[in-house]
Amino acid sequence: MLSDSSSTNVITEAIIRVQNVSVYYGSNLAVRDTSLDIPENKVVAFIGPSGCGKSTILRCFNRMNDLIPGARVEGKITFRGRDMYDKKVDPVALRSRIGMVFQKPNPFPKSIYENIAFGARINGYRGNMDELVEDSLRKAALWDEVKDKLKESGLALSGGQQQRLCIARAIAIQPEVILMDEPCSALDPISTLKVEELIHELKQQYTIIIVTHNMQQASRVSDYTAFYNAEATPKGGKVGYLVEYNRTETIFQNPLQEATRDYVSGRFG
């Protein structure tokens, strides 16, 4: 269960546990002292104004920040009880268990079929590839739209279809967690609705963490919501921090912190 305190946020069945995590880019502190637990088979939304560290924390969960020169993470993040920043942990293997869908759809310049098969093949999949491709596209609610053009380029699809293709690609490597960094920000309302419906379906099998600037979207799709904010630094920059984390209905209807209430009511942000 989630505690009533926004500073501890302890969930008994946490698949990812964040303990006193701060993230630096070079000498600049980007996010400070964050602690929260991600429950399994739930949707967790990260909301907050630009520059508050939502995406920075999200990228920590599959070590994408490792790819940014000068980035470092202090504190502890565990995945199923194991420190994911332990030197013995292979980041590539970790990313096969914690997939990611980015803000802008980024299909490979390959056929629809190969967009799905490529990652699975790289990860050593030995099963029936045709079945995996079909299953992944079905789970992404895309199969009926593309089943007759699997040899065509993934880049020929519409923006919304491309994003669902990227979700199918993430599913194909059989992850346990799917990270989504503003997956609907470049999509039209109809495509956004399809992705939101898809998120509802996927949480039956996956844990999903989504960063969104759309508070209505967070309230529609998530079970838990984390509100981040940022404060100015003496050097003129900003440092992000977690204000409050709780069940989504609590965050939107009865938050504990005044700053959360102001943000979700539209008074700033």
Score class of each variant (00 low, 15 high):
residue 229 N to M: 10
residue 136 S to Q: 01
residue 207 T to P: 01
residue 2 L to P: 05
residue 37 D to S: 12
residue 223 D to H: 14
residue 149 K to Q: 10
residue 215 M to C: 12
residue 179 L to Q: 04
residue 33 D to F: 06
residue 95 R to C: 00
residue 145 E to L: 04
residue 8 T to Y: 11
residue 247 R to Q: 14
residue 262 D to Y: 13
residue 43 V to E: 03
residue 119 G to I: 06
residue 108 F to M: 08
residue 184 C to P: 01
residue 37 D to A: 02
residue 175 P to R: 04
residue 192 T to W: 02
residue 14 A to S: 15
residue 107 P to V: 12
residue 20 N to D: 15
residue 221 V to K: 09
residue 32 R to N: 10
residue 128 N to Q: 06
residue 174 Q to Y: 07
residue 2 L to S: 09
residue 120 A to E: 00
residue 51 G to N: 08
residue 268 F to S: 08
residue 147 K to M: 11
residue 187 L to A: 08
residue 36 L to Q: 05
residue 75 G to K: 05
residue 243 V to I: 13
residue 116 I to S: 09
residue 169 R to I: 02
residue 41 N to Y: 14
residue 128 N to P: 03
residue 44 V to M: 10
residue 238 K to L: 15
residue 244 E to G: 08
residue 178 I to D: 08
residue 236 G to V: 06
residue 178 I to V: 05
residue 81 G to C: 09
residue 66 D to L: 11
residue 35 S to L: 01
residue 13 E to P: 10
residue 25 Y to P: 05
residue 196 E to F: 03
residue 236 G to N: 04
residue 75 G to E: 03
residue 162 Q to D: 00
residue 83 D to N: 15
residue 245 Y to C: 10
residue 46 F to S: 07
residue 265 S to F: 09
residue 142 L to E: 03
residue 157 L to R: 06
residue 30 A to F: 10
residue 216 Q to G: 14
residue 107 P to W: 06
residue 195 V to A: 04
residue 21 V to M: 07
residue 82 R to L: 13
residue 59 R to F: 11
residue 174 Q to E: 14
residue 179 L to N: 02
residue 72 R to V: 09
residue 1 M to F: 06
residue 136 S to I: 07
residue 253 Q to T: 14
residue 209 I to D: 02
residue 174 Q to I: 09
residue 247 R to F: 14
residue 217 Q to L: 03
residue 63 R to V: 12
residue 268 F to V: 04
residue 254 N to D: 14
residue 167 I to Q: 05
residue 5 S to Y: 13
residue 53 G to E: 04
residue 116 I to K: 05
residue 111 S to V: 05
residue 4 D to A: 13
residue 183 P to F: 04
residue 59 R to Y: 13
residue 55 S to E: 11
residue 144 D to M: 08
residue 162 Q to K: 10
residue 75 G to P: 08
residue 165 L to G: 00
residue 114 E to S: 10
residue 140 A to F: 07
residue 105 P to F: 04
residue 120 A to Q: 02
residue 5 S to R: 11
residue 186 A to C: 12
residue 252 F to A: 06
residue 72 R to H: 14
residue 4 D to H: 13
residue 167 I to E: 01
residue 157 L to N: 06
residue 256 L to I: 13
residue 97 R to D: 11
residue 55 S to A: 10
residue 197 E to K: 13
residue 99 G to A: 15
residue 243 V to E: 06
residue 60 C to A: 06
residue 139 K to C: 02
residue 117 A to L: 00
